[in-house]
């Protein structure tokens, strides 16, 4: 199947000379054609089931929304409604805010971990073991990991219990669960490893002798960190940031489970609008989400030219 077309080669080759194409060039073309044939199923699949649906989202965002259905009469009504509604604009803002906070939190919390695993632990086995320990939770269902925060953060949850036992608080904290804080904690925990991984990878490639040499020259840790370690790990930070950003911006489950409907991300808007058959409106939210994601990735890629770095 993969190499179909080969059988015709000899026949076509005979003509090759007449067309002024050398047999070698003919064979090269044949091989390129075979390669294209191999990649075409994947390309067709992606075009039909990814590109086309995305185009559909843009298209339907201009359809006319009636109570329970959409009609393909083009209008900007849904756009106007979205852009003039403070609720929806607020959800776009919430999405961006949550993204920014989670991104910062995963970086701040994850970087020292990466620093330890990638740079301080020089034993290969221990390094791999620590990374595997970080990755193992991913073999638990994502939704289960989200739900696992409920008995942690609830009024009668583990954290409140510990805080009360230690005498830090007298009455249980009620802001831990069903709040924006719960969403932030949950997302940070779930996505932090995507930041730790790439940074660790970049840090582990730093030649220890470089740092040694800098130390011999009298550079303090701060100087070494900002002059050597940080710049060299930057591509890892960017890759991690892209992972985290893409996932957080498309999120809705964590907010649905842990915020008690107090946090409405664009993802949640899409889900609730689809639930009430407001397809055109969901599409508008979808397009705006796409624009935000595209903008974030573009900005991140501007910071470091990944192709050059790796």
């Amino acid at each position: 199947m993969e190499f179909a077309g080969e059988q015709m080669q000899s026949a076509a080759q005979a003509q090759g000379g007449q067309n002024g194409v050398s047999p070698a060039e003919h064979r090269a073309r044949q091989e390129r054609r075979n390669a294209l044939m191999l990649i075409s199923p994947g390309v067709v699949w992606m075009a039909l089931f990814m590109v086309l649906p995305m185009v559909m989202v843009i298209y339907v965002s201009f359809w006319t929304q009636t109570t329970f259905t959409v009609e393909p009469t083009l209008t900007t009504d849904s756009w106007v409604r979205f852009l003039t509604s403070s609720t929806y604009l607020a959800s776009a803002w919430t999405t961006v805010r949550i993204w920014a906070i989670v991104l910062a939190a995963t970086l701040v919390i994850g970087y020292p971990v990466a620093l330890f695993i990638g740079l301080m632990v020089r034993n290969q086995t221990l390094q791999t073991a620590l990374l595997v320990i970080c990755i193992i939770p991913f073999w638990t269902s994502f939704l289960i990991r989200v739900i696992a925060w409920r008995p942690m953060l609830g009024t009668e949850g583990a954290i409140n219990m510990i805080l009360m036992k230690l005498g830090i608080v007298d009455t249980p904290l009620t802001t831990l669960l069903f709040s924006e804080l719960a969403v932030l904690i949950g997302m940070t925990q779930i996505y932090c490893v995507f930041m730790v991984g790439p940074i660790t990878f970049m840090l582990s490639r730093i030649d220890p002798s470089v740092i040694e040499a800098a130390r011999d020259l009298g550079a303090g840790f701060g100087r070494i960190f900002f002059k050597i370690i940080l710049p060299l790990s930057l591509p890892g930070v960017i890759v991690g940031a892209i992972f985290v950003s893409v996932m957080v911006l498309g999120e809705f489950a964590t907010a649905a489970s842990l915020s008690g409907r107090k946090v409405n991300l664009l993802g949640n808007i899409i889900v609730s609008q689809v639930g009430s058959l407001k397809w055109a409106f969901a599409s508008v939210a979808g397009v705006i989400l796409t624009i935000i994601i595209a903008a974030v990735i573009t900005v991140l890629l501007r910071v470091v030219n990944l192709r050059k770095e790796t």
Binding site: S10, Q13, G16, S22, A24, R27
Partner: peptide, 10 residues
């Protein structure tokens, strides 16, 4: 090879 052209053949 023996008069048969090889280049271009798989």
């Amino acid at each position: 090879y023996d008069g048969r052209r090889l280049d271009g053949i798989a």
